[in-house]
Computed example of a mutant assay.
Amino acid sequence: MDQSSTPAPTQHRAGQKIRDYRTARDMSAEELGKRLDPPRTIPAQSIYNWETRGKVARAPLQRRLNLLGICAPADWLEPAKENA
């Protein structure tokens, strides 16, 4: 099986929701990074780290993600669903 086409597992529900949001809109991590906190750009690597490595966004970005309806602050504390 080609591992490059298999998404990496997420560590928390927020990462799962962020990845779901991006894929539903056919959006790259770079594109999301540009839209999250203008005029700042959030590095794509930070977004990948949230999605796959269990890294946690800083509080202002958590609030922004919540305002955009992507994920709630509590999602950073909940484990990802295994079958998602």
Rank of each mutant, 00 (worst) to 15 (best):
M1W: 11
Q3G: 06
Q3P: 15
S4F: 14
S5R: 15
S5P: 04
T6H: 13
A8V: 05
P9D: 12
P9C: 09
T10R: 06
Q11F: 11
H12M: 01
H12G: 05
R13V: 00
A14G: 00
A14D: 04
G15Y: 08
G15I: 02
Q16Y: 01
Q16H: 05
Q16C: 02
R19A: 02
D20G: 12
D20I: 09
D20Q: 11
Y21A: 02
Y21H: 10
T23H: 09
A24Y: 06
R25K: 07
M27S: 06
S28I: 05
A29L: 04
E30Q: 14
E30R: 15
E31F: 10
E31Q: 13
L32G: 03
K34V: 03
R35H: 15
L36R: 05
D37R: 14
D37Q: 08
R40T: 05
R40Q: 08
T41L: 10
T41G: 07
I42T: 13
I42F: 04
Q45G: 14
Q45W: 11
I47L: 03
I47Y: 03
I47A: 04
Y48A: 09
Y48Q: 06
Y48E: 06
N49K: 12
W50C: 02
W50L: 06
W50P: 01
E51I: 03
E51R: 07
E51C: 07
T52H: 14
T52E: 13
T52R: 10
T52P: 01
R53F: 03
R53T: 02
R53Y: 05
G54A: 03
K55W: 14
K55Y: 14
A57R: 05
A57P: 08
A57N: 10
R58M: 12
A59G: 02
P60Q: 00
L61C: 04
Q62R: 15
Q62F: 13
L65A: 04
L65V: 05
L65M: 12
L65F: 11
N66Y: 15
N66S: 14
L67G: 06
L67K: 11
L68I: 00
I70C: 09
C71T: 05
C71N: 00
A72T: 07
P73N: 08
P73W: 12
W76V: 00
L77S: 13
P79F: 10
K81Q: 14
E82C: 10
N83F: 13
A84K: 10
